[in-house]
Amino acid sequence: MSFDKIQYAFMEHIRQPKENPLPHGIEDRRMAIYRDLFFNNIEGFISSGFPVLKSLYSREDWQKLIRKFFIEHDCQSPYFLDIAAEFVNYLVNTYERAKNDPIFMIELAHYEWVELDVSICQQDESELPIGSAITSVPLFLSSTARNLSYQFAVHNISADYIPTQPGATPHYFVVYRDHEDEIQFLVTNAMTALLLSLIETTPGIDFFELCNCVLQQAPQFSEQQIHDGANSTLMTMAHKGVVVTKNEDENLY
């Protein structure tokens, strides 16, 4: 048997030991070590990355969910830190929700994964803080911030609060890494989410162009109301490090 075939047989048995025979010439006692090692490592990383989601399942049902991921998903990254992202990708693109799965499982899983994503992402070294000149510098969403919206109030979900239908309006959040490298979760609103979304999709946009874009989407507000609201909101976001600039002229901030 070729080495490739041996590897394939080994992998298939590790994933589904009941459906695939032991690789030729390897005793079950030795394979049991690998079976437990591989699955327990995967289960451990996912459990630690999605504690709230896990708390909504019985131990048996959680093990079944992780086993399905272990069997059905081909991870594209060899790094353990990427397992959580692979799990979310699996839930979004492959997994078919079962009756015992909460209706919000994908949104909750994504919300929990974002904490890890923000904690390990590399900050863009060209980013600079903004002081008092929010109207005079190009605006960027920090590389260590995420502007999010969900149909469910994912920040409130627990074993004691399990919603059965989405909210009437979206729920908005910012997850970001603060100046002490601590992960922070911030509940926002539709206008803040719009401002940050426009900055994210139009990196380097200036304050007045940003306000004009908001005015087009929210004509019920006057130009002055939008300018005042945007200035206040963006200064708060700049203070937290969510909004930054990349202007190298230190006199501007």
Score class of each variant (00 low, 15 high):
residue 3 F to H: 08
residue 3 F to M: 10
residue 3 F to E: 08
residue 5 K to R: 14
residue 8 Y to E: 11
residue 11 M to C: 12
residue 15 R to T: 03
residue 16 Q to P: 06
residue 18 K to W: 03
residue 18 K to P: 03
residue 23 P to R: 07
residue 25 G to Y: 00
residue 27 E to P: 08
residue 27 E to D: 15
residue 30 R to N: 13
residue 30 R to C: 08
residue 31 M to G: 06
residue 33 I to H: 03
residue 36 D to T: 12
residue 37 L to D: 05
residue 41 N to L: 14
residue 44 G to F: 00
residue 48 S to A: 15
residue 50 F to C: 08
residue 53 L to E: 02
residue 55 S to G: 15
residue 57 Y to I: 12
residue 57 Y to K: 12
residue 60 E to F: 05
residue 61 D to F: 06
residue 64 K to I: 09
residue 65 L to C: 04
residue 68 K to S: 12
residue 69 F to Q: 05
residue 73 H to T: 09
residue 75 C to W: 00
residue 80 F to K: 13
residue 81 L to Q: 07
residue 88 V to G: 01
residue 90 Y to A: 03
residue 90 Y to H: 03
residue 90 Y to K: 05
residue 91 L to D: 02
residue 93 N to M: 00
residue 93 N to L: 06
residue 100 N to D: 15
residue 101 D to W: 02
residue 102 P to I: 00
residue 103 I to G: 04
residue 117 D to C: 06
residue 120 I to E: 06
residue 122 Q to E: 12
residue 124 D to N: 13
residue 124 D to Q: 08
residue 131 G to W: 05
residue 137 V to F: 03
residue 137 V to E: 09
residue 137 V to H: 01
residue 139 L to M: 01
residue 148 L to Q: 08
residue 150 Y to P: 07
residue 158 S to G: 14
residue 160 D to G: 15
residue 167 G to A: 15
residue 167 G to L: 09
residue 171 H to W: 03
residue 174 V to Q: 06
residue 174 V to T: 15
residue 174 V to S: 07
residue 183 I to S: 03
residue 183 I to C: 10
residue 184 Q to H: 07
residue 185 F to V: 12
residue 188 T to V: 11
residue 194 L to F: 05
residue 194 L to T: 13
residue 195 L to H: 07
residue 195 L to D: 06
residue 195 L to C: 09
residue 196 L to E: 12
residue 197 S to H: 12
residue 202 T to R: 14
residue 207 F to W: 02
residue 209 E to Y: 02
residue 211 C to A: 15
residue 213 C to D: 08
residue 216 Q to E: 15
residue 217 Q to W: 01
residue 217 Q to V: 06
residue 218 A to I: 14
residue 220 Q to M: 12
residue 220 Q to D: 13
residue 221 F to K: 14
residue 222 S to A: 09
residue 224 Q to G: 09
residue 224 Q to T: 12
residue 225 Q to L: 04
residue 227 H to D: 05
residue 228 D to N: 07
residue 231 N to R: 15
residue 236 T to A: 05
residue 240 K to E: 10
residue 242 V to T: 05
residue 243 V to P: 05
residue 248 E to F: 15
residue 250 E to K: 10
residue 251 N to M: 07
residue 251 N to T: 13
residue 252 L to G: 03
